[in-house]
């Protein structure tokens, strides 16, 4: 078993001094090793975070790509609908224009017919 580590005086002092040096060296070893283990841990944690963030980024990019594709599809559809709407409006205007001098509109004529049928 080891002895009292309080620094003694007398003949045993050299032995105690050496013991103390060994203890200090061990202590130094411990703190350096802790530093290394800590750095490795932090490195590992950063790597894990990086992997996670990269995976999240990949997923988000995929999602952005999907959403962009959906947006482009919808834009194309919207454009198509707008084109058809314009075409139909023009057609309606054309039809209504052609009838404007020739009596009441189709709707008015239909309403009139319904009313007469109900009398």
């Amino acid at each position: 078993m080891t002895q009292d580590a309080t620094p003694p005086t007398g003949d045993g002092s050299e032995l105690e001094r050496l013991r103390e040096e060994v203890a200090e060296a061990r202590h130094h070893l411990l703190t350096v090793q802790d530093h290394i283990v800590g750095l490795e841990a932090e490195n590992g944690r950063l790597n894990r975070d990086l992997i996670r963030v990269t995976a999240e980024l990949r997923q988000l990019r995929k999602r952005v790509k999907n959403l962009t594709g959906q947006r482009d599809d919808l834009r194309t559809k919207l454009q198509d609908v707008r084109t058809r709407l314009e075409r139909n409006r023009a057609r309606v205007a054309q039809l209504e224009g052609s009838r404007s001098g020739g009596g009441p509109s189709l709707a008015r004529r239909a309403a009139r017919r319904v009313r007469s049928a109900l009398r």
Partner: peptide, 24 residues
């Protein structure tokens, strides 16, 4: 018994580490 004097500011970790370095 092994008595290890410690004269630095409070640090639990350091105190135990120093103790272990004197342990056999």
């Amino acid at each position: 018994l092994v008595l290890v004097p410690f004269d630095r500011p409070f640090n639990f970790s350091e105190k135990v580490n120093v103790g272990v370095c004197h342990a056999s």
